[in-house]
């Protein structure tokens, strides 16, 4: 039997798309974990809220009759802003008061926040699946590849790359970015050089939420529907990706997302779509057994 390259590449492309989205969400998990040592289970919900805000804003703007590009820009900005606000508020309400509590307390609080936000959107919006506008047009120059991947795949890859580059720049070179790394590595010392740790933690939540919102918009436009429950599954998968890559490690989150996306895509393509989640979580179990710190994570080594 000949190897079907075309099919392989198609699976690769769809894996890349899934992986990009997982990576965008996983970054939020890993950044927050790195800085406060907390798994923010409400993060998936922020992603869902980001998609909803875009949906609402774009519907509103369409009624106003704005051109497509203006609508996309404004709705995206609104979504990022809104999601950032939610991330900030969630931290202030559910995590900050518990910062010196035993580790289990903020975890429970995070799960509570997640359930609350899901139900809040369900009651405030709808429990039905809603059709999401196809905001990404078909590009003519991608016509030759139409059988392999769509314009929306392409936009997702490009956006992810750009967002990653911006994030890398922020973390590596800006004052806030350096302070974020310093706070993650040694919070007391960060305070001793005069860093306002609360502000840095808020910034981390806001940036993570903004990334999740971008992911939410992209994938909803790709699949063409939204629902209050999408954040839960995506959140668990992205969390898996973050652990896979090494929780706390930023390149790890990206790698973990891509590996997970590829694994799911190939498992679906060569076995059965029923096995998608089985593969994703088997991968998690294997990684936790054989490389507990994740692909790029490292066990704590410190000289005293």
């Amino acid at each position: 039997m000949d190897f079907d390259y075309q099919y392989f590449i198609e699976l690769f492309a769809s894996g890349l798309t899934k992986g990009s989205i997982y990576a965008l969400i996983a970054l939020g998990y890993t950044m927050v974990y790195g800085i406060v040592g907390l798994i923010n289970f409400a993060h998936g919900e922020i992603y869902m809220i980001g998609a909803f805000v875009f949906f609402l804003a774009s519907s509103l703007l369409t009624v106003l009759g704005l051109p497509l590009w203006a609508m996309i820009c404004i709705a995206t900005a609104a979504s990022i802003f809104w999601a950032g606000g939610y991330g900030y508020t969630v931290e202030k309400i559910a995590y900050k008061p518990l910062r010196s509590a035993p580790r289990l307390s903020p975890l429970i609080s995070a799960i509570g926040m997640s359930v609350f936000l899901q139900n809040y959107v369900m009651l405030g919006q709808t429990e039905k699946y809603l059709g999401f506008p196809e905001v990404i047009p078909e590009f003519d120059f991608l016509e030759p590849f139409a059988t392999t991947f769509s314009s929306s795949d392409f936009v997702i890859w490009m956006t992810t790359v750009i967002v990653m580059l911006i994030l890398t720049w922020i973390i590596k070179f800006t004052r806030t970015g350096k302070a974020m790394r310093a706070t993650a590595q040694d919070r007391t010392m960060a305070e001793l050089v005069g860093i306002n740790v609360n502000r840095i933690i808020s910034a981390t939540f806001i940036i993570g939420s903004a990334l999740a919102a971008v992911g939410g918009i992209l994938i909803s436009s790709h699949t063409g529907s939204i629902h209050y429950y999408i954040g839960f599954i995506a959140g668990i998968k992205a969390f898996t990706a973050a652990v896979l890559g090494g929780i706390g490690s930023i390149p790890g989150a990206v790698l973990g997302g891509l590996v997970l996306g590829m694994a799911e895509s190939f498992a679906t393509g060569y076995f059965s779509s029923a096995y998608e989640d089985v593969f994703a979580f088997s991968l998690l179990v294997l990684i936790l057994i054989f490389r507990p710190a994740g692909l790029l994570g490292h066990a704590e080594t410190e000289k005293v």
Binding site: K178, R181, A182, Q185, D186, T188, M189, A190, L192, V193, E302, K303, V304
Partner: peptide, 13 residues
């Protein structure tokens, strides 16, 4: 300005 006990260097910076 304080230099705390155990130096507290940011290890990965």
């Amino acid at each position: 300005s304080q230099v705390p006990e155990g130096r507290h260097i940011f290890p990965q910076l």
